[in-house]
């Protein structure tokens, strides 16, 4: 077998896969943030809490109702997305005429409430969620062992990301959405219900977070803090990519996950901060982000 710079290929490939999985979550979460930001112009600080909510709802469905993983994969985004729609209708809607920072503060408060409630009722030790039977086991690829579930996470994320990209960039609905991003007043004048569209867009972005939560449930233990630290890294990903393009969010998410994985191989101590260091470099060279538009 080949060796690279004295690193055994099993280690390299193992970390690369881990990086790709982290990258999947970065991509799906930053995609949700980008979709929400595009139309609402707010940063959804509760995104991490909604991701955690997704994992918990999947766990609850299984524990209390016996609903399995595959149904959860469909039901959880709908449920979590619905809570997002309620939040938009009751609270966020009242803030659109104000400075966008208020949206950030409000969703931060919402994140505290959700995380605090789950910490109260479920503690912080974490709850187990088994990998579905169909995806247990793994494949021996010759140079490494690929657990089926981890492969599935990457595939599912890629499908969802490109599905979202296709809808927004290539369909009529997406065209309305992009038009409303540019000029909501004009789009409203053409008879399109912009407030409804904003509400559904927020719901969709939140549903993406919930979907990521279901994907994460069997890999990471389901616990109230699972989204809190992750979301800060995702913010850095968003700053690096810039929120100008959907494809940008996807590429940056996966790319940074892989870079983080490689850092774990070559310089383990730096793996926790490598994304922040990249953010600092990007801010120096191209402050608007790699795919960002300067407006």
């Amino acid at each position: 077998m080949f060796e690279l710079l004295g690193i055994p290929p099993q280690v390299l490939m193992g970390q690369l896969l881990l990086g790709l999985i982290n990258g999947s979550f970065y991509a799906v979460l930053s995609l949700g943030l980008a979709v929400i930001f595009g139309l609402l112009n707010i940063i959804n600080f509760s995104h991490g809490a909604q991701y955690m909510l997704g994992a918990f709802v999947a766990w609850m469905l299984l524990e209390y109702l016996g609903i399995n993983y595959w149904w959860a994969l469909i039901l959880v985004p709908v449920i979590v997305g619905a809570t997002g729609i309620v939040l938009e209708k009751l609270a966020l809607r009242r803030l659109y005429h104000l400075d966008h920072l208020y949206g950030l503060l409000l969703t931060f408060g919402v994140a505290l409430i959700i995380q605090g409630l789950f910490r109260n009722y479920y503690g912080i030790s974490g709850l187990p969620y088994n990998i579905p039977d169909q995806l247990s086991g793994g494949q021996n690829l010759g140079f490494m062992f690929l657990p089926n579930y981890r492969g599935w996470v990457v595939v599912a994320s890629v499908i969802v990301c490109f599905g979202t990209w296709f809808v927004i960039e290539k369909t009529r609905l997406g065209a309305y959405l992009r038009a409303a991003t540019e000029n909501p007043t004009l789009v409203g004048a053409f008879g399109i219900n912009v407030p409804l569209m904003i509400m559904l867009t927020y719901g969709f972005g939140v549903a993406l977070a919930g979907f990521a939560g279901v994907l994460a449930a069997p890999i990471y233990s389901v616990n109230p803090n699972m989204g809190a630290d992750l979301i800060i890294v995702v913010f850095a990903v968003v700053v690096i990519g810039g929120m100008g393009s959907i494809m940008g969010a996807i590429v940056t998410g996966f790319g940074l996950g892989v870079i983080e994985g490689l850092t774990k191989v070559f310089y383990p101590a730096g793996s926790a901060v490598v994304i922040f260091v990249i953010m600092a470099i990007v801010l120096m060279i191209k402050p608007e982000g790699l795919f960002g538009r300067n407006n």
């Binding site: 609270a91 009242r94 803030l95 208020y102 503060l105 409000l106 931060f108 408060g109 919402v110 994140a111 505290l112 409430i113 959700i114 995380q115 605090g116 409630l117 910490r119 109260n120």
Partner: peptide, 18 residues
């Protein structure tokens, strides 16, 4: 009250902003 403090802080945030 443990984690309830976090919840209360979150509620103050939301009410304060709204």
């Amino acid at each position: 009250m443990g984690a309830w403090v976090t919840v209360i802080q979150g509620v103050i945030f939301v009410l304060g902003v709204l």
